[in-house]
Amino acid sequence: MNVKVDWSGNMTFTATSGSGHQVLMDGPPAAGGENKGPRPMEMMLMGMGGCTSFDVKAMLNKSRQDVTGCEVELQAERADAVPAVFTKIHCHFKVTGRNLKEALVKRAVALSAEKYCSASIMFNDAGVEISHSYEIHQQDLA
C-alpha cells in the first residue's frame, strides 16, 4: 500500500492513494489553512470509522442480516500537549434493517473491535482507550 501527499499551497495538501483516489486535507485559518478539507487527524478518525464499518457490514452480510443502513459516529479525545495524540475514541453504531438479530449485531461490533479492524487495533495497541456501543433500528417488512 502506498500514498503520495503533495503540498497544494498554504496549508493544503492533496493525498493520492495507490488505487488512484484523491483526498484534499487542509488546516484551519488560524494555522494558515483555508478550511478546504478535513484535518489530517480527522482523516485518521474517518479511516478508523470506515475500517470498522466495513467489518461490521461484511459480517452482517455473511450472517444474512437484512441491513438497510449502517453508520458509526466516532468521538475522540486528544492529549492537551504536543503531540496531541488520541487518548480516547468511542464508536457508536446505528444499524438499521429488517428482522435484525441483536446478538449478531453485538458480535459483529465486538469482532471488528477485537480481531478485524486494523485501525482500531493499531490505535488500541498505541494506548488509545477505545469503546463501542450500538443501537438497532428495526424496519417493517413491508
Rank of each mutant, 00 (worst) to 15 (best):
V128P: 00
K115A: 12
P29A: 09
S53G: 15
D66W: 06
G49L: 01
H132W: 09
A58K: 13
R107S: 02
A30M: 12
G20V: 00
V23H: 04
F123P: 01
T52Q: 14
N124T: 12
A142K: 08
Y116L: 11
L74R: 00
M48L: 15
K4T: 15
D80E: 05
V82D: 02
G127C: 08
L24S: 06
N61M: 13
N2E: 08
M11P: 14
G9R: 02
S19G: 10
V23D: 01
L24F: 06
M44E: 14
L104E: 15
L111K: 05
S118Y: 05
T12W: 02
E71P: 06
T87M: 00
P38I: 08
K62L: 09
I136E: 04
E114Q: 12
T52A: 13
A113T: 11
E77G: 00
N61G: 12
S133G: 15
W7T: 03
R78N: 02
P38N: 13
A58H: 14
G127S: 01
F54K: 15
G18K: 04
R78H: 07
V3E: 00
E135S: 14
C70G: 14
A110T: 11
G69Q: 09
E129R: 00
S131F: 04
T68E: 13
E114R: 08
I121F: 14
M44Y: 13
K4S: 15
K88T: 01
Q139R: 10
A126V: 02
L24R: 08
V128Q: 00
G33E: 11
V82Q: 06
K94M: 03
G27M: 10
H92F: 08
C91P: 02
M43G: 05
L100H: 07
S8M: 09
A103W: 00
E135R: 11
H92P: 08
F123D: 00
R78G: 01
